[in-house]
Computed example of a mutant assay.
Amino acid sequence: MRFLVAALPALALLTAAAPPPPTFDALRFFSGRTEGKGRFKVALRAGHDVHVQGHGRMDGDTLILDQIVTREGTDPKPRQWRIREVSPGRYTGTLTDAKGAITGETTGDRLHLAFTSTGGFAVEQWLTIAADGRSAQNRLTAKKFGITVATLDETIRKLD
């Protein structure tokens, strides 16, 4: 008990010294060059590696993110995101792989994106920015009729 009482001030100092996690600013994170490496898994099939090279730039209030997506065993495929912040922490935009608008929302260090793919899948992405603000973990799920049919686990790094 004496040890616990003696350790409390030190524990309080450690807790107080921990910096808060960064806020996920999607427009700033994806501006410049990024690289994603991950594993894409479709239900009942073997997973395969995915590599994404990105270059984002601002055009007025809109982020234009051009990406080249290379899935193991396929030719590289270009895609483009256009995202703008409509209110603090809330985003809307388009994606060449989506039907209709995409929506996004940040809560602290997490960014949630949602859209319907051109194939009719309900897609959700949850990105969590690392403490240093230079990388993020991306967890994507694609559902059809409420059943998860594909997932992606990816690490995205800022290169600039």
Rank of each mutant, 00 (worst) to 15 (best):
L13E: 08
A136H: 08
I83P: 10
P20G: 05
D49L: 03
A43I: 11
L13W: 15
D97S: 09
L4E: 06
T107E: 11
P19C: 07
E72I: 05
T107S: 10
V52M: 15
E72D: 07
G93N: 08
F30E: 00
L65D: 08
V5C: 10
E72H: 03
L11A: 15
P20V: 02
P76A: 08
A142V: 00
A43Q: 11
P20M: 08
G100F: 11
L44Q: 14
A130N: 02
Y91A: 03
G36T: 02
T141E: 11
K41L: 11
E105F: 04
T34C: 06
L13Y: 12
T15S: 14
T74K: 08
F40C: 10
Q67E: 15
D66N: 10
R71H: 06
A17M: 14
R157W: 10
A142P: 08
R2G: 13
A114H: 11
A17G: 07
R57H: 02
L44E: 15
P76N: 00
Y91G: 09
Q80L: 11
D109L: 00
M58L: 07
D61I: 02
K143T: 01
I102M: 15
T116K: 15
E154I: 02
T103E: 12
L65F: 11
T94M: 13
R139S: 06
A114R: 14
I129S: 03
V123C: 13
A136V: 01
T70W: 03
D109Y: 02
V123P: 12
I147M: 15
L95R: 08
T106R: 03
Q137Y: 07
I68Y: 14
S135R: 13
D132N: 07
H112M: 09
T148S: 07
K37Y: 04
R57M: 00
R84H: 10
T94G: 15
P76E: 01
P20A: 11
A7W: 09
Q67W: 06
V5Y: 15
